[in-house]
Write a protein that binds this DNA or RNA. Structure first.
Length: 205
DNA sequence: CTAGTATAAAAGCGTT
DNA sequence: AACGCTTTTATACTAG
């Protein structure tokens, strides 16, 4: 279902887990959120708590935040295609309750991806070798790494698993992971051979 | 097992 | 002017 992507000989594998996007609806007057909330029985609207309506679409699964200005935030999609389908559905539903929408534009704001380096990482060494990294195991078990180019943030765990977030273009995910692997390799931040490796290490043939 | 901790990003309203 | 709120999601580690 979720496409794994391979990059050259380096086995860079990752999976997109979440996409955040904004949608701008072309409307000529503000949207009456009370009206929308009444028509969409499964929506949540507590203006005291948050100015937008929360609408969850089951298929394709996605959650929308709808604002009176005609802007929407979409979260939870794993592919651009599913994101577009969910948006099409919501726009159609809004039109069906008398909201005039001339057109709309979708802009992806953030990709969240996860994957695994193929080795355990010495986070204590990593945080002293890598600039722009933070590691406070008492607070969070992952090392936080702020990559500048491409601009991306990583959560790196001792078992080699990681989360990459903050990139706006899908191609930057593999690029960022490639660079991360490079930094780890260059500085030999991983645990050498079987030192501290777990039994789940995958052996190549 | 659940909740909180940490990451990014947008929206718009309320509070420092 | 700058947050906090709200939503999503992977990851993992601790405390009830």
């Amino acid at each position: 279902m979720d496409d794994k992507v391979k990059l050259k000989k380096e086995d860079i594998e990752y999976k997109v887990d979440n996409i955040v996007a904004t949608v701008t609806l072309e409307i000529d007057k503000k949207i009456d959120l009370v009206h929308v909330a009444r028509k969409f029985i499964d929506s949540e609207y507590n203006p005291e708590r948050f100015p937008g309506i929360v609408l969850r679409v089951p298929e394709p699964k996605a959650t929308f935040l709808i604002f009176s200005t005609g802007k929407m935030v979409v979260t939870g999609s794993k592919t651009e295609n599913k994101l577009k389908k969910a948006v099409t559905k919501v726009v159609k539903d809004l039109k069906s309750i008398d909201i005039k929408i001339e057109d709309y534009t979708i802009k992806i704001e953030n990709f969240v991806a996860s994957g695994g380096l193929n080795k355990r990482i010495d986070l204590n060494l990593a945080t002293i070798m890598m600039e722009y990294s933070l590691y406070e195991p008492e607070i969070f078990p992952g090392l936080i790494y702020y990559m500048r180019d491409p601009k991306a943030s990583f959560l790196i765990f001792s078992n080699g698993n990681f989360v990459c977030t903050g990139v706006k273009h899908e191609h930057q995910i593999a690029e960022a992971i490639f660079k991360l692997k490079d930094v780890i390799q260059e500085n030999e931040i991983y645990y050498k051979s079987e030192e501290k490796s777990s039994s789940e290490e995958i052996v190549f043939i």
